[in-house]
């Protein structure tokens, strides 16, 4: 069976049949996968997985949806900057239309008295700022769109 593997930056096809690997799911939700005699301990919650203690993000999806579910960019090149963690917006550093370089500060979030600057992952222009100072944002909420 053919599968397509998409990493953060790359995609590639792999040949692998998951049903060929025996595994046991223990009562507490941890899965033990035997690869030969080697035991791999895996647990997951949604797309976050712990694989032998290493935390990674993995999803399985239909290849026909691949484009839509890409790295946050849609076909027009628009890119949503999302909150990595919940927090409160204490400062907005950019305005719509403003050009930004990679690494430029977009806004400042605060949680548990710690402040953290959200930076632009690449160069572009600010399309929209979706939050204002004082907003409480959830993890994954769109803060700014870049074009």
């Amino acid at each position: 069976m053919k599968r397509i593997l998409i990493g953060a930056e790359t995609e590639k096809e792999i040949e692998f049949d998951p049903s060929a690997l025996p595994f046991q799911t223990l009562e507490d939700g941890t899965s033990l996968v035997l690869h030969g005699a080697r035991v791999h301990r895996i647990t997951h919650a949604g797309r976050r997985l712990l694989v032998n203690g290493k935390e990674v993000s993995l999803t399985l999806a239909d290849p026909r949806n691949r484009r839509r579910n890409g790295s946050g960019k849609d076909d027009s090149g628009r890119r949503d900057i999302k909150a990595a963690m919940p927090g409160k917006v204490v400062k907005v550093l950019v305005e719509p239309g403003q050009a930004v370089d990679a690494g430029a500060g977009l806004l400042i979030l605060e949680a548990m008295k710690m402040q953290n600057e959200v930076r632009s992952p690449g160069a572009g222009a600010v399309g929209a700022v979706r939050v204002t100072v004082g907003d409480t944002v959830a993890s994954g909420q769109v803060l700014v769109t870049l074009e």
Binding site: L21, T59, L60
Partner: peptide
């Protein structure tokens, strides 16, 4: 491969279809 096996079992419908694996791995 072990991780894909666990995910595929958790989502049986998708396991039968060709798979796309997306990761930060």
């Amino acid at each position: 491969e072990a991780a894909i096996a666990v995910l595929a079992a958790a989502e049986p419908k998708q396991a039968r279809a060709p798979l796309v694996v997306r990761s930060n791995w």
